[in-house]
Nucleic acid binder design. Structure first.
Lengths: 104, 104
DNA sequence: CGTGAATGATATGTAAATGGATCTTATTTT
DNA sequence: AAAATAAGATCCATTTACATATCATTCACG
């Protein structure tokens, strides 16, 4: 059916890593701004640990991202809006991807 | 500057509650689908405790929502896309709102 | 009114996130 | 190549998420 929690964590980690590199920041810098330790940020980026909601929000903001909860039916539209995001720096937008197999 | 973590949790809780009521589900039903206990879901909905990332994803999905990480610069656009969402049932879309005071 | 369902709220115990220290292994940089 | 910096990885102590049980309160409805 869909992505397991582990997969979601891995995906989030990948996005964080890609965004961080796009911003040319070190793990320590991001961890610092987000107010967590580097070992912890490392685990979150590696997807081997499920951060608290508040921690994830802090990390996201440290990277210039915002956490949003979007109606599943709107995900494709939002995705489409985000993809052609060719700015100075472009990061992929993360979706928790149930799979994409909604009957939209 | 911006929203504290506590405020973010309260906002998330409000969205969850509004969405749940829109879907006419009980706390127990959502908790059940999300795989957590009712007291636990109650606390998260009340914003008095920060769920793990995986838990939040599960709850969101139980309510037909998806967790997304969006570049802050794109938040207004996504918000605009989400607001006129007058479907069969319409839920507000959550944003972790740093405040809206980005120089966009 | 009163009966039951939904919700608010708390307590105890377990599991997992987090911080801090430390060590190793890349990856740069000079 | 050596030095420095970043990243991978593991340990222990503390905090907190979460389950389960329980009771109070509110709310819908006959």
């Amino acid at each position: 059916m869909a992505q397991s929690q582990s997969d979601a964590l891995l995906d989030i980690g990948q996005l964080l890593k890609a965004t961080r590199k796009g911003r040319q920041l070190t793990q320590e810098q991001v961890a610092d701004i987000a107010g967590i330790s580097r070992p912890r940020y490392r685990e979150i980026e590696a997807g081997s640990s499920a951060a608290r909601t508040t921690t994830l929000i802090n990390i996201a903001r440290a990277l210039g991202l915002e956490l949003m909860l979007v109606p599943q039916a709107m995900v494709p539209a939002v995705d489409a809006l985000l993809r052609p995001h060719d700015d100075l720096d472009d990061f992929p937008a993360f979706v928790a991807h149930p799979d994409g197999d909604l009957g939209v």
